[in-house]
Design a protein around this nucleic acid. Sequence first.
DNA 1: ATTCTGACTCAAGACGGG
DNA 2: CCATCTTGAGTCAGAAT
DNA 3: CCGGTCC
Length: 394
Amino acid sequence: MGIKGLTKLIADNAHGAVKEQKFENYFGRKIAIDASMSIYQFLIVVGRSGSELLTNDAGEVTSHLQGMFNRTIRVLEAGLKPVYVFDGQPPDLKKRELAKRFARREDAAEDLVTAKETGNEADVEKYSKKTVKVTKQHNEDCRKLLRLMGVPVVEAPSEAEAECASLCKAEKVFAVASEDMDSLTYGSTRFLRHLMEPTSRKLPVLEFDIAKVLEGLGLNMDQFVDLCILCGCDYCDTIRGIGPQTALKMIRQHGSLEIVLENLNKDRYQVPDPWPYQEARRLFKEPLVTPPEKVPEFKWTAPDTEGLRQLLVEENGFNNDRVMKAIEKLKVAKNKASQGRLESFFGVSSSSSNKRKEAPDSEASAGKQVKTAAAVKPAKAASKKGPAKGGKKK
DNA sequence: ATTCTGACTCAAGACGGG
DNA sequence: CCATCTTGAGTCAGAAT
DNA sequence: CCGGTCC
């Protein structure tokens, strides 16, 4: 579940590390996205009524396809270049955490049975959400769908978040989009939250700049990783009595987990018996990922019309007209996106952007990007609600 | 008065028509 | 050996320091 | 912008 309390800690202590951005600002950017997390959300919410989801004639769930298809079209229409990253084998250290989640799901499954028997609609709704799991089949379906849509897919050897961060560090992508704060712990240089929310919830995209996070917290990257472990992560239990506040205080004071432990009042604080912080640290700093030089260059190709029709219409009962219209959108989006990011801003082409083989959009990303961010600022101030819309959700 | 815990809750997509 | 995997935010209680 | 529908 990410890093406990890290959002608040950064908000309180590292002002300026987070910028509010607009979705449209990422035109032309390559963005790494954790696929499993998206699929999970689709299974929770798309087409659900009671404990039912969208299904094909064979009774197989299709909510994930519906969700992934539409969202990806949306993303491509906005000119973003998504790279979907799928999970591989979880590290051993995560097994205990996974077992916990498994148990929680089983409990929910029991409650669900009861709720169905007693006919309690609200409870059926509640518990069925908690029993959702992303299966291998869902992942396969989505990989197939994305490939047919011409969107690159990465299969991570282990944690998708770690792979995303690695791609970002190597500048294979501009940023990582996730809701999971441990993207930062893995070292994503640029990290986006709520990238998909603005359509549904009108939240601004939050862009975290890790360099500024470190600056604000007064830590180096190694210390930041230690801070995250001390706050609580998927790999280690927390030390009772130590939360985000004291964790930050202690790391600032002592500089590393080793020294913190040396100076820790063992009567006051009890360190969990196996507390594999060194192993956890290793997983954050040197996770199992594809070596960046072995990552093939990402390509966004034209959609395979017949393949999509076969998969969605023939095999899964999607409405033919809808699918065809959607494919048209894809084609249009592809043409629009094939122009560079700079052209979309200035209306002219920049010849310099073709020099490097891999850098058409990472060169603009480096330092100058700050200027465009500054240009956006007034817009943010102006967007301060108020006018015609009213804003009340009734 | 501050800080952490733990148990709890809630909501989560996207499109198109009126 | 098989199949596996979500997450955050907010709040409110009570306990420890 | 709200409400039903998507499969």
